[in-house]
C-alpha cells in the first residue's frame, strides 16, 4: 500500500442527508431528522477510512448516501472523478461497478431463494453481456478469492454459516471489480472467532486488488487494526478526523476521548487501574439536535459558547481535524490545557 499514490479516490464535501417528518391531519412537512448534517472527508486510494460512532449517529446513512442508495439532501460525493450525488440515473448505473457495498447482516442481505451462483453473478447479469460460461468462470474465481469451496456453488444462503454468508456478500461486492467498497458493519453480526477470519480476508483483498474502503463500525479496536485514518461521528456530524495512531494515542475531541475510554480492554489489571469517563444521559434526537455543539448536552467539559455556536471541523494539528471550541482560537488556552491533560491521561 506504500506505493499507492497519495491522491484521494473519494471526496465527500458537506454531505447532508435529512429525512422529512410529516405529521398532523394533512401530513404536513413539520421537520427533518438530520441523520447526516454536513460531513466532509476524503479517502486516499488504497487506504481505509474508519467511520465510528454509536447507533443512530448517522454512520450507516453516510455510507448509503455516498453510494446514492439514498438521495442526498445536499453536498458532493466525488468518487473516482465523478460527483455521484448529482449523476443522472443512466450515468449512475454506469458508475455502479466502481463502488460497491458489503452489508451488516449477511442473513438479511442475501436472497434466500437464490443460490450462491445466482447471487454472486447477479451484478454480472446487470452490467455485462457475458455468456453463461464466462459468468460461471468469474463466480468460481470470486469464490476462490474469498475462500469459499467451489463445491458450494449451487447451495442456498441458509446452508452456510454466518462467516461464510459474509464471504458471499463480499464476493458479490467484488464481482464487477470495484475500486471503492463501503463496508457497513461487516463483522458486527459474527462471533469473535469468525470476525478475525473476515477482517483478514478484507485486508488480503485490499492488498491484492488495491481496494479503497470506508469501514463503518462501532468496534473501535477493530477499526484501529484496519484503518489508516478514523472519523468519529456524533449525531450526524464528525467530531474528530485523525490518523488512527494519533487518535488512539491521544484523542482530542472530548467525545472521542469518552468513547475510547468506554472500550473494554481484555486485561483485568488495566481495567482495575483505568479511569473511565462515564458520559451521563443519552444521545439527543437528531430531529431536534441541540442549538450549539451537538455534544454539549453530555460533554464533561462544556463551556458557554458550546451551547450557542456549532463548532466547525478545523485542522488543529497537522492532519488532525476536530470540531470543538476547546481547540479554536477563542478557546486556545483550553486547547493547550486539554493537550496537557490528555498527555497525562495517556499514562494512566
Amino acid at each position: 500500500m506504500l506505493d499507492a499514490p497519495a491522491t484521494p479516490l473519494v471526496q465527500v464535501q458537506d454531505l447532508k442527508m435529512h429525512f422529512p417528518i410529516y405529521s398532523g391531519l394533512f401530513r404536513r412537512h413539520t421537520g427533518d431528522v438530520k441523520a447526516v448534517d454536513g460531513v466532509s472527508f476524503d479517502i486516499l486510494a488504497g487506504q481505509t477510512l474508519g467511520l465510528v460512532g454509536e447507533s443512530g449517529c448517522g454512520k450507516s446513512t453516510v455510507g448509503r448516501a455516498m453510494l446514492r442508495l439514498y438521495e442526498p439532501t445536499a453536498g458532493r460525493v466525488v468518487i473516482d472523478g465523478d460527483d455521484v450525488a448529482t449523476l443522472s440515473p443512466e450515468a449512475l448505473r454506469k458508475k455502479r461497478p466502481t463502488m460497491q457495498m458489503v452489508f451488516q447482516d449477511p442473513q438479511a442481505s442475501l436472497n434466500p431463494r437464490m443460490t450462491l451462483a445466482e447471487i454472486v453473478s447477479e451484478p454480472l447479469e446487470e452490467h455485462t453481456n457475458w455468456t453463461r460460461d464466462q459468468k460461471l468462470e468469474r463466480v468460481y474465481e470470486l469464490m476462490d478469492q474469498v475462500g469459499l469451496n467451489r463445491r458450494f456453488v449451487n447451495r442456498f444462503p441458509h446452508e452456510f454459516s454466518g462467516g461464510q454468508r459474509q464471504r458471499i456478500g463480499i464476493a458479490r461486492a467484488l464481482a464487477l471489480k470495484p475500486r471503492f467498497i463501503v463496508c457497513d458493519e461487516p463483522i458486527a453480526a459474527l462471533d469473535v472467532s469468525i470476525q478475525a477470519q473476515v477482517v483478514n480476508l478484507l485486508e488480503d483483498l485490499q492488498e491484492k486488488l488495491g481496494l479503497t474502503y470506508l469501514f463503518i463500525s462501532h468496534d473501535l479496536s477493530m477499526v484501529r487494526h484496519l484503518a489508516q485514518r478514523v472519523a468519529v461521528m456524533y449525531l450526524g456530524r464528525i467530531a474528530e478526523l485523525s490518523p488512527s495512531k494519533d487518535l488512539y494515542a491521544r484523542p482530542l475531541h472530548p467525545y472521542a476521548e469518552a468513547l475510547l475510554s468506554a472500550v473494554n480492554e481484555p486485561d483485568p489489571e488495566l481495567a482495575a487501574r483505568r479511569n473511565r469517563i462515564i458520559l451521563k444521559g443519552d444521545v439527543p434526537s437528531p430531529a431536534n439536535p441541540p442549538k450549539g455543539c451537538n455534544f454539549c448536552t453530555r460533554c464533561p467539559r462544556v463551556m458557554d459558547i458550546c451551547r450557542t455556536v456549532k463548532p466547525d471541523l478545523l485542522e488543529v494539528e497537522p492532519g488532525r481535524l476536530v470540531a470543538c471550541h476547546l481547540y479554536t482560537a477563542a478557546g486556545s488556552t483550553g486547547a493547550s490545557e486539554a493537550n496537557e491533560r490528555n498527555q497525562q491521561g495517556e499514562t494512566r
Partner: peptide, 25 residues
C-alpha cells in the same frame, strides 16, 4: 488462548495480522 489473541486492542502496539481460529463451532 486463541480467543484472547483474535481480539485487537486499543492500547499497546497495533496488530499487523489478526490471529484466526480456523473452522466453525
Amino acid at each position: 488462548r486463541a480467543l484472547l489473541q483474535t481480539i485487537p486492542r486499543i492500547t499497546g502496539p497495533r496488530t499487523t495480522r489478526l490471529k484466526v481460529i480456523e473452522g466453525q463451532p
